[in-house]
């Protein structure tokens, strides 16, 4: 068992090093995320999609449709569902204890983008 421990631990650090080296030496793949022609939605449009089954949110000026993703979100539903139909940038940037989401989440976010949020009219 001792040998197994040593070999798995070494393999782990070898792979961690490979991930690090890969990020340094290999060019990142082109951002393949196809951004659809930007469509603009108003806050009223946003508010019409305020249920877990039909859940849009606005984050950092973009509008996202999270209806399909919501069941996969790691936190419990009552943390994320109240943000359906709303501007949720602050919640996204300061999830529990004020932490921003991870780069992985940022990447995931792009997959659900459907357009941008119309700017508020100057008063």
């Amino acid at each position: 068992m001792r040998r197994f421990y040593i070999s798995t631990t070494l393999l782990f650090w070898l792979l961690v090093t490979a991930f690090w080296a890969g990020s340094l030496w290999l060019p990142p793949a082109e951002q393949s995320q196809a951004v659809a022609a930007e469509k603009t939605y108003s806050k009223a449009d946003l508010a019409k999609h305020a249920t877990p089954d039909n859940c849009w949110m606005a984050i950092r000026g973009s509008v996202y449709d999270f209806s399909a993703y919501l069941p996969e979100h790691p936190s419990r539903p009552d943390l994320i569902e109240p943000w359906c139909g709303k501007e949720a940038t602050e919640a996204y940037n300061t999830k529990t204890k004020g932490r921003p989401h991870t780069p992985y989440a940022d990447e995931l976010l792009a997959k659900f983008k459907i357009g941008k949020l119309a700017a508020d009219k100057p008063k």
């Binding site: 961690v16 991930f19 890969g22 990020s23 990142p28 793949a29 932490r99 921003p100 991870t102 992985y104």
Partner: peptide, 27 residues
Amino acid sequence: LLLAGDAWPNNRQLAWQTLSPFDQGWP
């Protein structure tokens, strides 16, 4: 490793960012 490996084919920098503790928070 598997969580980071998911991003590896498309974006190796993102894979490392997912694994690396340096850009992360307490969780």
